[in-house]
Nucleic acid binder design. Structure first.
Length: 456
RNA sequence: GUGAUUGUAGCUCAGUUGGUUAGAGCGCUGGUUUGUGGAUCCAGAGGUCGCCGGUUCGAGCCCGGUCUUUCACCCCA
C-alpha cells in the first residue's frame, strides 16, 4: 500500500472550504459583473514561448514546465548534456503551466483582436501555478481573480478598480485594510530627482523596510546598493510624509518639479482621485504611497496593492497599468489596466479574523428517516414529491436504527428531519423535527413543502 | 535559489540522561435506550513514532540523507 500524499504547496478543498471559497468568489464575480466585465477562460497550459521572458529572470525560474510527451530526450545529443538543463529546456519542454492570468489574456487579445470590440473588459477566475517555496499564504497552486480593461487610456478604469476593491471588501465584511496606490512614473520621477536614474527597484525594496528597520538602517542598505550620499539627503523629505492624500500630493509636486515624467504621473494620480470624488466614493481606506512598487517588469502607470491589517499575510490584491503588454504578441499600442484578487489569501485573512458567516446555504433542508422497509418505501414516495417542489431533500439510504440516522442529520447540521413510521404512513403525514430545538409536529406533505419554502 | 524550522493515534499534543508492552484529551465504534440526535456513564478499536540509512547490546530520542510543514531573505496573490 502506498501512503497518499499531495505535491508540495497544493491543497484539497473539502465541503466547508468550498462553501467558503464560493462565498468569496461570488462576492468577486458579482462585483466584476456589476462593473461590466465579461468572463473568459484560457487553458491551464500555454506554449512556453508565450510565458518565458514576461516575468523577469526570477519569474522564468518559477515557471512549471511540462515535459514533452513521447520520447522527450529525442533531440538531445550527448554533448548537450554537458551544457546543463537550462540550455536544453527548449528541446525537453514546449509547454508550461500558466504563471498568471494577465499574460494569457494578452495572448488572447492579440489572437482575437478582430473579434473583440475595444475597450474590452474581461474577468477571469482560474488557478495559476508557481514553483515558489511555499509558506503561509503562499502556495504553488492558487486562484487569481483578474479583471482587466484593454484598449483605453482612460483613468476611469483606475478609479473603477478602486471602486471594485472597496465593494468586494465591503461585501466580505472586511473593514480594516488599506488600498495603496502609486504611479510608476512618480517612482521614475523620484529617482530622477535624487540623481539615481533607473534604480527604482532597489530604492523601493529598501524603503519598504522603513517601518521594520528604521531610516538609519535603510540609508545603510541604500548605500550598499550603490546610492550616493547626496541622493539620500535629497530623499529625506519623502521619508516622513504626513498622512492624507492631498498633503502628500503637494509635497510630491514640489519634490518632482524638475521631472516632467514624475509630474505626469502625479497628474494621473490626481485625476484618479478627482474621478473618485465625482463618483461620490468614500476614500477612507485609500492611501497614496509614493514608494509603493510592484511588478516593475511591466507596469508603466498606476500601481495598486491591498493589504489587510491585523493579519500577517502578504498582499491580497494587486495590479496596475501596462502600456504595451500585447506588443510582444504583435499587437502594439494597446494599453491595459487590471488587478487581481488572491482568493486563497483572502480565505486565510477571513478565517484568521473569523469573518466567515455561519451559513449552510446549499445543504440539504430535510432528511427523511425511517424504521423499517415499509417506512423506507413510504419515504421514497415523499422524497420525489418534495424534490419536485424544489425542497432539497435526502433519504437515509440504509434501514438502520433511528439513532444513527439522527446522528447523521445532526453532524451534517441539517435543519429538519422527516420521520416516516407506521403512524405517519397510516395518517399520510411526516413527523417533522427541528434539529436545533428538538420540537416536532405532524404535517402533511403539502404543509411540509409550504413550511420549508417559507423558511428559505 | 540562500539560511533556519517542523513531523508521535483521525485531530491537538505529552513522552525524563538512549532502556521492557509509546500515553492523554477530543473525535470515532458499540452499549446504557427495540419510535427520537447533542448530555452522562461504561467498554472498544486505532500508531512501521514522516521515509531511508547509520551509530549502539538496545533508537520515538543521537548522526547523515530525503520528503513535508512553517519562518526569514528574495519575490509575490
Amino acid at each position: 500500500m502506498q501512503k497518499p500524499s499531495l505535491p508540495k504547496g497544493t491543497r484539497d478543498f473539502g465541503p466547508i472550504q468550498m462553501a467558503r471559497r464560493n462565498y468569496i468568489l461570488d462576492a468577486i464575480k458579482d462585483t466584476f459583473q456589476l462593473f461590466g466585465y465579461q468572463q473568459i477562460e484560457t487553458p491551464a497550459m500555454e506554449n512556453l514561448s508565450t510565458l518565458t521572458g514576461k516575468y523577469g529572470e526570477e519569474g522564468d525560474q518559477l515557471l512549471f514546465k511540462i515535459l514533452n510527451s513521447g520520447d522527450f530526450l529525442k533531440g538531445v545529443v550527448p554533448e548537450d548534456v554537458a551544457k546543463g538543463s537550462v540550455a536544453n529546456l527548449s528541446k525537453l519542454a514546449e509547454k508550461g503551466l500558466r504563471y498568471d492570468l494577465t499574460v494569457p489574456f494578452a495572448r488572447f487579445v492579440a489572437m482575437n483582436r478582430n473579434e473583440l470590440s475595444f475597450p474590452f473588459k474581461r474577468y477571469q477566475i482560474q488557478p495559476v501555478w508557481r514553483a515558489d517555496r511555499p509558506q503561509k499564504g503562499r502556495y504553488r497552486e492558487f486562484y487569481q481573480c483578474d479583471a482587466d480593461v484593454v484598449g483605453t487610456d482612460s483613468l476611469l478604469c483606475e478609479a473603477e478598480i478602486i471602486g471594485m476593491i472597496r465593494q468586494v471588501f465591503s461585501k466580505l465584511g472586511l473593514i480594516n485594510y488599506s488600498i495603496k496606490i502609486n504611479n510608476r512614473k512618480i517612482l521614475t520621477g523620484i529617482t530622477e530627482a535624487i540623481g539615481a536614474e533607473g534604480k527604482e527597484g532597489p530604492l523601493c525594496v529598501a524603503i519598504d523596510k522603513l517601518d521594520k528597520i528604521g531610516w538609519e538602517k535603510v540609508q545603510e542598505e541604500l548605500q550598499q546598493r550603490g546610492f550616493e550620499k547626496s541622493s539620500l539627503t535629497r530623499l529625506a523629505p519623502l521619508v516622513d510624509l504626513q498622512e492624507g492624500v492631498k498633503a502628500r500630493i503637494s509635497v510630491l509636486a514640489e519634490f518632482l518639479k524638475n521631472s516632467p515624467i514624475g509630474l505626469q504621473g502625479l497628474q494621473e494620480l490626481e485625476e484618479v482621485f478627482l474621478l473618485l470624488e465625482q463618483m461620490g466614493s468614500n476614500l477612507d481606506q485609500v492611501d497614496f504611497d509614493p514608494m509603493l512598487a510592484r511588478g516593475l517588469s511591466y507596469y508603466t502607470g498606476a500601481i495598486f496593492e491591498v493589504k489587510a491589517h491585523e493579519v500577517t499575510i502578504g498582499s491580497v490584491c494587486g495590479g496596475g497599468r501596462y502600456d504595451n503588454l500585447t506588443g510582444v504578441f504583435g499587437l502594439p499600442g494597446v494599453s491595459g489596466v487590471g488587478f487581481s484578487f488572491g482568493v486563497d489569501r483572502l480565505y486565510d485573512v477571513l478565517e484568521e479574523l473569523n469573518l466567515f458567516p455561519r451559513h449552510r446555504l446549499e445543504g440539504t433542508q430535510l432528511l427523511l428517516v425511517h424504521f423499517d422497509q415499509a417506512g423506507f418505501g413510504y419515504a421514497l414516495r415523499c422524497l420525489t414529491v418534495l424534490r419536485e417542489a424544489g425542497i432539497r431533500a435526502e433519504l437515509y439510504p440504509e434501514v438502520t436504527k433511528l439513532k444513527k440516522q439522527l446522528e447523521y442529520a445532526s453532524k451534517k447540521e441539517l435543519p429538519y428531519v422527516g420521520i416516516c413510521g407506521d403512524q405517519e404512513i397510516a395518517t399520510d403525514t411526516l413527523a417533522v423535527k427541528v434539529l436545533a430545538t428538538g420540537a416536532q409536529e405532524s404535517l402533511t406533505l403539502n404543509e411540509v413543502i409550504a413550511k420549508l419554502q417559507a423558511s428559505i
